[in-house]
Design a protein around this nucleic acid. Structure first.
Lengths: 259, 259
DNA sequence: AGGCTGGCAT
DNA sequence: ATGCCAGCCT
């Protein structure tokens, strides 16, 4: 049995937005420590892993492992009916086929109750190796979003080069080419705008830009993002939810010299 | 002869928006006491009745009964040319076939004059019996709009149940079900947000939700709406225009146990 | 007050 | 399916 209360529906609404375009249906794995999700994207190129720790809820209770098979589009329709600052409570029985959700308005005596039908989904639990990356860049998430959107107009690939001095995103396409460089600068005026680089070794890798743009749907969830790079290993784009979990995206590099 | 001046064109613009999708053409019945309209919607399922009293104008003059046959889409096109806070003056001759409209900008010396061709339309004056309803619920109009939109995602029907304790809107569909409950509460912080229930008898009725969503086009006209319910009688959704009239929608319940 | 997102209409 | 307008959120 799961029963969990979230003081602001916004968190779950945003989490859903951050994954729904990548994944159409998957299991939310609920247990004592929180709610987790892992899935390959529909075209099996990227991987999303999300965790929402029990601390994010108040209260949170889940006695045993409970996988909830959810169609994300349908969950999205229902969450659209919650206002951002509603109090959200979710419940599921151990052997039920329903996720029930209650939204309570703080201002008024309005209570909304929705039941979402659950589905049986084969859990493909994906072992993600714990890697030490050659380069870890922590930067402003909205900056990262801007850069991806900007370069997208030029090409469908970006090359990310990281050295001790900074990180450079570059694209080359029909209409011309573009590059955006951020210097490593731990101490900038606006705290959120610092670009911090921890480097074992310089790297240069190329990725499909449309996936990166897609990952930036998580931008509203965290002011900072970290890009974790190692040659020939999938890029990890990591959004930490202040104390309550994360959304992580993995994307294999483009290999060879495809145009 | 009709001659009437409205200090803010916005009122007429909004009224038109509130009916134009339901009705394509109908008579505006003008007389000494104001301007009224009654019509079945195009599919003859719902009925709209609108009244704009002479007090809403300044000045207002209409000597005798004058039915103005109007194509609402065309009137809409012309009203789009009026800014919300223009002064609007309408005129029609007793035996003319034209409605002339003048929009005067308050800020500038701009005067716009439009003539709309009138048409002959058979007046189907619909006797609407004056009913005493089992339940009359007065609530925030924008709240009502939200609820209809939210539930629309789940089904094309809503069931409205009203008891002394509150009013409950519920829908059941493919992806799950939903219910929104408002407790009766005469004294909430925000005046407009109170839900007031006058009950003779509890009722539970089911309606086509798309009509309700359509009715909520009147939301900008009034902060409050009243839902008037009696078993087996059409629902009356009533938006009162502060002292100057109303927009009322009638909708027959769905009968039997259609899915 | 401005930007962004969602809804409605064409 | 696209463009425009309104409401909500930051």
């Amino acid at each position: 049995m799961l029963e969990a209360r979230l003081p602001e529906a916004k968190l779950l609404k945003s989490l859903l937005e951050a994954v729904r375009e990548l994944v159409t249906e998957c299991n939310f794995e609920c247990n004592d420590s929180g709610i987790a999700l892992q899935a390959m994207d529909n075209s099996h190129v990227a991987l999303v892993a999300m965790l929402l720790r029990s601390d994010g809820f108040d209260p949170y209770r889940c006695d045993r492992n409970l996988p909830l098979g959810i169609n994300l589009a349908n969950l999205g329709k229902i969450l659209k009916c919650a206002r951002n600052n509603d109090i959200l409570t979710i419940k599921a029985d151990d052997d039920g086929d329903i996720l029930s959700m209650v939204f309570e308005s703080k201002e008024s005596d309005k209570i909304s109750e929705y039941d979402l039908k659950l589905m049986d989904i084969d859990s493909e639990h994906l072992g993600i190796p714990d890697t030490t990356y050659d380069a870890v860049v922590t930067m402003s998430s909205s900056r990262f979003q801007e850069i991806c959107r900007d370069l997208q107009t030029l090409s469908d690939s970006v090359t990310i080069e990281c050295t001790k001095e900074g990180i450079k995103f570059s694209s080359d396409g029909e209409i011309g080419k573009g590059a955006v460089t951020l210097k490593a600068n731990s101490s900038v005026d606006s705290e959120d705008d610092a670009t911090v680089i921890e480097l074992q070794q310089s790297v240069s890798m190329t990725f499909s830009i449309k996936y990166l743009v897609n990952f930036t749907k998580a931008t509203p969830l965290a002011s900072r993002v970290s890009l974790n790079l190692s040659t020939d290993i999938p890029l990890l784009v990591d959004y930490k939810l202040e104390n309550v979990g994360y959304v992580r995206y993995y994307l294999a590099p483009k290999i060879g010299d495809e145009e």
